[in-house]
Amino acid sequence: MIVAVLNQKGGVGKSTVALHLAGEWARREKRVVLIDADPQGSALNWSQQRAREGLGRIFGVVGLARDTLHNEAPELARSVDHVVIDGPPRVASLMRSALLAADLVLIPVQPSPFDGWASAEMLALIAEARIYRPQLIARFVLNRCGARTVIARQTAETLADHDPPVFASTVGQRVAFASAARSGRLVSEINSRSPAAREITALCAEIGRIAP
Rank of each mutant, 00 (worst) to 15 (best):
T68P: 07
I58S: 04
G146R: 13
Q110F: 04
N71H: 15
S93R: 13
G60N: 12
A120I: 15
L125T: 10
G146M: 11
V91S: 08
A51N: 10
A102C: 09
R148P: 10
N71E: 14
G56N: 10
L69G: 03
A51C: 00
L76H: 03
R90I: 08
A65H: 05
L104Q: 02
G116I: 14
G54H: 06
L94I: 14
A124N: 14
L123W: 06
A77V: 08
H70T: 00
I58L: 10
I126E: 00
A147N: 11
E75Y: 10
R148H: 14
N45K: 14
L125N: 08
V141E: 05
A73E: 04
S79K: 15
R130C: 01
I107T: 04
P108N: 09
L106P: 03
V141Q: 02
I58R: 05
V105Y: 04
E53N: 09
V105C: 06
R78P: 07
Y132K: 15
L64P: 04
S93V: 13
A124I: 10
A102M: 04
N143D: 12
S112E: 01
C145W: 03
Q49N: 09
R133Q: 13
G63P: 12
T149V: 06
P113G: 10
L142W: 01
P113A: 13
R57P: 07
L106D: 00
A120N: 12
V91F: 12
W46Q: 04
A51I: 08
L123S: 07
P134Y: 11
R66P: 02
A124Y: 08
E128T: 07
M122S: 13
I137W: 06
R52Y: 03
A129W: 01
L123Y: 08
V141T: 06
S93I: 15
A65L: 01
P108F: 12
F140I: 10
D103H: 10
N71L: 15
S112L: 02
V109E: 07
R52K: 14
V105R: 01
I126R: 03
P111V: 02
D103R: 05
I137F: 05
V80K: 04
Q135W: 13
I126L: 09
R52E: 04
I137C: 08
M95T: 14
L76V: 09
R66V: 13
T149N: 09
A77L: 14
L100K: 08
R52M: 07
V84H: 07
R96A: 12
R90C: 05
R78M: 11
S112D: 03
R148N: 15
A147G: 11
A51R: 11
D81P: 02
L106Q: 01
A92F: 03
Q110N: 13
G87P: 03
L123E: 08
N45T: 14
I131W: 14
R57T: 11
E53Y: 05
P111Y: 00
L76D: 07
R148Y: 10
A65T: 06
P108C: 10
R96D: 12
E121L: 11
V141C: 04
A51P: 00
A102K: 01
A118Q: 06
F59L: 09
I85P: 05
W46R: 06
P88C: 14
L76Q: 06
D103K: 00
